[in-house]
Amino acid sequence: MVRRPLGQLEAEVLAVLASAQGELSPADVQARLSGHPAYTTVNTVLSRLHGKQFVSRARRGRHFAYRTVVDEPRLVADRMCDHLRYASDPCHALNQFVRSLNPDEEQLLRTVLDGDALG
């Protein structure tokens, strides 16, 4: 099992929910995540996201089913902007970010910057 920061797992869970066509149970979310996190870990993350009002939940039998209530791309963009705003050297931070992109991500960024991206 791969350990990752909780913030990263929260982002991954939100991405799974955002890509779903409806509500997902914790087991459904767990099955779609890489790294095979424990069911209890996924359930805890979902409960925390519910507390932060990022997801809604509805009782389905003995368990809950979850869906996002936030715009996940907007949330990710806001986090990126917040990190950049508080960087002591934003130019260096952006440079490091761009250098960390894989070729597909770099091409996507070029498409966005050229104004050719949909969305």
Rank of each mutant, 00 (worst) to 15 (best):
V2D: 10
V2I: 15
R4N: 02
P5A: 11
L6H: 03
Q8E: 15
A11P: 01
E12N: 03
V13C: 02
L14C: 05
L14Q: 01
V16N: 00
L17I: 07
L17W: 02
A18C: 02
S19Q: 12
S19K: 12
S19E: 14
S19P: 00
A20K: 02
A20T: 06
Q21C: 05
G22A: 07
G22M: 09
S25Q: 03
D28Y: 00
D28M: 07
V29R: 00
V29N: 04
A31E: 14
A31Q: 12
R32G: 01
R32Y: 01
R32S: 06
S34E: 15
S34P: 12
S34N: 11
G35H: 10
H36A: 13
P37Q: 02
P37W: 01
P37L: 08
A38V: 06
Y39K: 09
T40G: 03
T40D: 15
T41W: 02
T41G: 02
V42L: 05
N43Q: 15
T44N: 13
L46Y: 05
S47Q: 08
S47M: 10
R48N: 11
H50Q: 11
H50T: 13
G51K: 08
G51T: 04
Q53I: 03
Q53F: 10
R57D: 05
R59K: 15
R59F: 05
G61V: 10
F64S: 10
A65K: 06
Y66R: 02
V70H: 01
E72T: 09
E72L: 11
R74C: 04
R74D: 07
L75F: 13
V76I: 08
V76A: 12
V76P: 00
V76Q: 04
A77I: 05
A77F: 08
D78N: 09
D78M: 10
R79Y: 06
M80C: 14
C81G: 02
C81L: 15
D82K: 08
H83I: 06
H83N: 08
R85C: 06
A87H: 08
S88H: 14
D89C: 04
D89Y: 07
D89E: 11
P90R: 07
P90S: 12
C91W: 09
C91V: 14
H92S: 07
H92D: 03
A93V: 05
L94H: 09
N95M: 06
N95T: 14
F97Y: 05
V98D: 01
V98L: 04
R99Q: 15
S100T: 06
S100L: 11
L101V: 09
L101M: 13
N102Y: 00
P103G: 03
D104M: 03
D104I: 10
D104T: 13
E105M: 13
E105I: 05
E105A: 14
E106G: 12
E106M: 11
L108Q: 15
L108R: 14
L108F: 13
L109F: 08
L109V: 15
R110F: 08
V112W: 04
L113M: 14
D116M: 09
A117Q: 11
L118I: 11
